[in-house]
Design a protein around this nucleic acid. Structure first.
Length: 208
DNA sequence: TGATACGGAAGCGCCTACTG
DNA sequence: CAGTAGGCGCTTCCGTATCA
């Protein structure tokens, strides 16, 4: 399988792959659209019947997809939540830890869910990047965890998460002490040189 | 009209620097 | 010393714009 970056040295590829993190979501979306890489999450509303949601994959997921495309010319299929992990019936008022966390019912900021999750995590749970990452990973695998196992997974992820995700460029630089007054300029510069390389690539099709 | 895309606002995540 | 505001991007939410 040929990759699309033949002209680059190994070192240059390393730099490129690292600097992809400096692209913002708008730039990433534009590249994905041009090359027909999926952006939007799909759900299965009936057997083998899929529709788009309004939700897009996280930045890290999109970047992984782009890397796979650059290296192997493979266009991965979109993230799909199958019917087993979905429900659009109203969230029960008396949810408890044995209930399943389902797409369509689980909503950020829902106070009932927050209360339950706080209870199950020794008051540590917050709605944020980690919670979203954890639950989407479950759903993408076709698993609807109970609130109890979601809480357990969240606590584990929280401990594991000792530094910002690589794709959060600003926070990563910040944690390394590399953020100075003109970080925004740095981001634009890095993004520009990444885009110069990416723009040399013609769109290809190969569905995995 | 319904579906989709876009845009702004608010909260999270992290560290530094400041305030009391 | 503890607490908090500032800085920036990502995510989510929600209202508005656009398209078929």
């Amino acid at each position: 399988m040929k990759d699309l970056l033949l002209k680059l040295t190994r070192k240059q590829k390393q730099v490129l792959f690292n600097d992809l993190n400096y692209l913002n979501l708008k730039e990433i979306k534009a590249f994905c659209k041009k090359h027909h890489l999926p952006i939007v999450i799909h759900i299965e509303i009936a057997k083998d019947h899929y529709i788009k949601t309004t939700e897009i994959d996280r930045k890290g997921v999109l970047l992984a997809r782009i890397k796979q495309y650059l290296l192997a010319q493979i266009i991965q299929s979109p993230t799909i939540f199958n019917s087993k992990v979905i429900s659009f019936t109203l969230l029960p008022k008396n949810i408890h830890e044995k209930n399943k966390v389902l797409y369509g019912q689980y909503k950020n900021k829902n106070p009932l869910i927050l209360k339950l999750m706080k209870k199950l995590t020794n008051n540590q749970f917050t709605y944020g990047a980690i919670s979203q990452e954890v639950i989407r990973k479950f759903w993408a695998k076709g698993i609807a965890p109970t609130y109890q196992s979601f809480a357990k997974a969240w606590l584990k992820a929280k401990i594991f998460h000792d530094k910002p995700n690589a794709e959060w460029a600003y926070l990563t630089d910040k944690s390394k002490g590399l953020v100075y007054s003109d970080w925004k300029k740095l981001r634009v510069q890095k993004a520009k040189s990444v885009l110069v390389i990416l723009n040399t690539i013609k769109s290809k099709f190969k569905i995995s």
